[in-house]
Simulated scan of single mutants.
Amino acid sequence: MCVHAYPPRRAIAPINERLSVRIVPSLRGIYAEGDMVIALWDGTATAKDGKPYTNIYSWYMTMKNGRIVKAVAFFDTIELTDLWNRIPVSKISNMMKIHLEQFLTEWYCWLRATCY
């Protein structure tokens, strides 16, 4: 199985560096049962090249005492890859790019093993 967990800041920082306007969420729906909460939302932003960045997200969050203790996020990797390839990053974020590329490779591996 190809799965890797990343702390939220480590995953989000290199995305934010490519944006001139950060992602603004628009909630489509929120669903809860027991300790599981699922949020389906659209995110829109403006990239540093002036083009729009839009994506759809689905977050699965495990709650305990009113706090998120675990989260799994799904999103459109084609949209993210387009943003990633268009906008250059600093050397520090370049290291994060390597981690994201590893994550996307592992995610693709997991998807193929699960769906094919």
Rank of each mutant, 00 (worst) to 15 (best):
M63P: 03
V72S: 08
R67D: 10
Y53G: 00
P88W: 00
A71V: 05
N94V: 01
A71N: 00
S58I: 11
I92K: 15
G66C: 07
F75W: 08
M63S: 01
N65C: 03
S93H: 15
V72F: 10
D76A: 01
N55E: 05
T77N: 00
S90T: 15
K91P: 07
W84M: 12
M61P: 00
A71H: 03
G66I: 10
K70P: 03
A73F: 10
N85M: 03
M61Q: 02
D82Y: 08
L100E: 01
Y60V: 06
K97T: 11
D82S: 12
V72Q: 04
F75I: 04
Y57D: 04
N94G: 14
P52K: 03
F74R: 09
L80K: 04
G50M: 09
V72G: 06
P88H: 02
M63V: 01
H99W: 09
T62W: 04
T62N: 07
T62Y: 01
K91D: 13
K70S: 14
H99K: 09
I98R: 15
M95D: 07
W59M: 09
D82K: 13
L83G: 04
Y60D: 02
R86V: 00
K51N: 10
K91S: 14
P52S: 03
G50W: 01
Y57V: 12
L100Q: 06
A73Y: 04
F75E: 08
P88Q: 08
Y53M: 01
P52Y: 03
N55L: 14
D76C: 02
Y57A: 04
